[in-house]
């Protein structure tokens, strides 16, 4: 428990003492991840097979169909 607590405070203090550059980089990371997962993934990159089929069997059959026809 003591170790977990000290690891937790290590991170908390690390983020508390972060400099301007660090904040800027974290903001860039946050914006980037938001664009990737909340915009691109949801609106532009649905998983093609998952969006059409529920089971692995159906997905496999569909892929085979596209290969043999």
């Amino acid at each position: 428990m003591k170790i977990i607590k000290s690891i937790f405070y290590f991170y908390v203090n690390g983020f508390k003492n972060i400099d301007k550059l660090g904040i800027k980089l974290w903001v860039i990371i946050a914006i980037k991840l938001f664009i990737m997962f909340a915009i691109l993934k949801i609106f532009f990159f649905p998983d093609f097979l998952n969006s059409k089929f529920d089971s692995d069997k159906d997905k496999g059959n569909y892929v085979i169909e596209t290969l043999i026809n």
Partner: peptide
């Protein structure tokens, strides 16, 4: 610090390749 800048900006850019696998290259991915 220079490593950190490059790491922060570059991190997760590869995930987009995985998005493309699932959307554009579904036969291949499967």
């Amino acid at each position: 610090k220079i490593f950190g800048i490059n790491f922060a900006i570059g991190v997760a850019t590869g995930i987009i390749l995985e998005f493309e696998f699932g959307t554009n290259w579904s036969n291949y991915s499967w």
